[in-house]
Write a protein that binds this DNA or RNA. Sequence first.
RNA 1: CGGGGCGUGGCGCAGCCUGGUAGCGCGCCUGCUUUGGGAGCAGGAGGUCCCGAGUUCGAAUCUCGGCGCCCCGACCA
Length: 483
Amino acid sequence: MPAGRDPFVTEITPRSEDFSRWYTDVVRRAELADYSPVKGSMVIRPYGYAIWELMQASLDARLKATGHVNAYFPLFIPESLLRKEAAHVEGFAPEVAWVTHGGDEELEERLVVRPTSEAIIGTMYSKWIQSWRDLPILINQWANVVRWEKVTRLFLRTTEFLWQEGHTAHETEAEAEAEALRMLGVYKEFAERELAMPVLDGRKTESEKFAGAKVTYSIEALMGDGRALQAGTSHNLGQNFAKVFDITFQARDKSMQHVWQTSWGMTTRLIGGVIMTHGDDSGLILPPRIAPHQTVIVPIPRGNWRETVLPRAREIEQALTAAGVRVVLDDRDVHTPGWKYAEWEMRGVPLRIEIGPRDIAQSQVMLVRRDTRDKSPTPIDGLASRVTALLGQIQQDLLDRALRFRNEHTMRAGSHDEFVQAFQGRPGFVVAPWCGGDACEASIKAELQATIRNLPLEPTPASGDCLRCGQPGQTDAYFAKAY
RNA sequence: CGGGGCGUGGCGCAGCCUGGUAGCGCGCCUGCUUUGGGAGCAGGAGGUCCCGAGUUCGAAUCUCGGCGCCCCGACCA
């Protein structure tokens, strides 16, 4: 490669040139996922799946810590069950996959492949719940779901995807509301701590809420191209499903009551979110906490390096492993060090350790950060604790950087003119007063393709009159173009 | 679902207009020399030209139909 300012990695379309092509290049070149022979469905490759497993493990621990238990419900749902809740069917009917035959025989009743599991779980809850003593029920399931999408993107929107869906039933309305908000908080903390992805938590408008919910809450993240990504949702279902699925219990006062329910989910889409939050022209940048390889060791082959350099590299590998660092030693001799640098950078490994004869002579290694490319010679003595500290620092810096980006790309609009002007560029989030009317929300969407991502959780008076109709504002809203 | 683009060794593409031996770069295999930011030389393997019909002596190329993917718009995690 020629010297100078050429990019280190040349196999990826630059982010600034074509963001969506950059995204696809990163997913494929980093071997996170690949297209499959099934339309709209992708294969999550081992490296991508390893990220998902790390995300799963830490989210699952949080769900357990908040009292939830895992279970598994059927993939197929009888048509009649899905149809019970009117708003729910209406919302999902256009995108369900139908099973009409078993072998050669046509089924008596068609089955849907679950787009979500409220119907089947509600049916079971009505069998399991009799008394207030059975409550609350706090069940989560890790599963695949299918939604027949017309347009698909790797990770962001595929016909089949993996997720976690929590389904709870409570004695009181207040308890259900508290649960929905509590899980929203879990999602926010998870996104920010594990994924270094800052999110706005808030409430969805009527038109954007989950089909069948009373209230939907969401966390919304800002991607590198200024578009928002819904990163998790939590619903207060009220008694909507309890009424149609007949989920009743005898209350403390001996009366029969319907339970109050919640549901909440997070998906493999978040992997797409991580890519678009942190990545750069050289490819992926993974937050250390979800990086399958947190550190790669690249030995520099010189002379009889297998006798001189490699043993030292192995010692370092062992020391780091013992210290709990996920480390990989790249001792392949078919590739040059430079090739390996580029390759592992593209795959987002947060930290690289270079070790060659010159380093060994000085009892040091070269530490190179993926996010800043800062190089620092570091003594081999005490390396593990230095690496651990640096990984923590990188995790923090990624969050700080993403937060700074979001702050720089969040603006206020006090008037319709300011608002329109903002959306002619790539503003990110725009905070503006809204009257609360569907019509204004819809007309802005039609005009500017900008939607209300969510509304602040804490009810605060609007900062002015509705940017659309000029009537008194009811609340400020977060607008953005969304994925 | 509308508008546009593209389907040719694993990947990226040329060839198509004007029908006649399938080609280039990267990757892959073997060997030697190398290795501190995607190494060099030599030799080699690898193809239903997306699928199906049609026109023709002859189709990657022309015609019709289908499928898939990408991008931009309406619905969704």
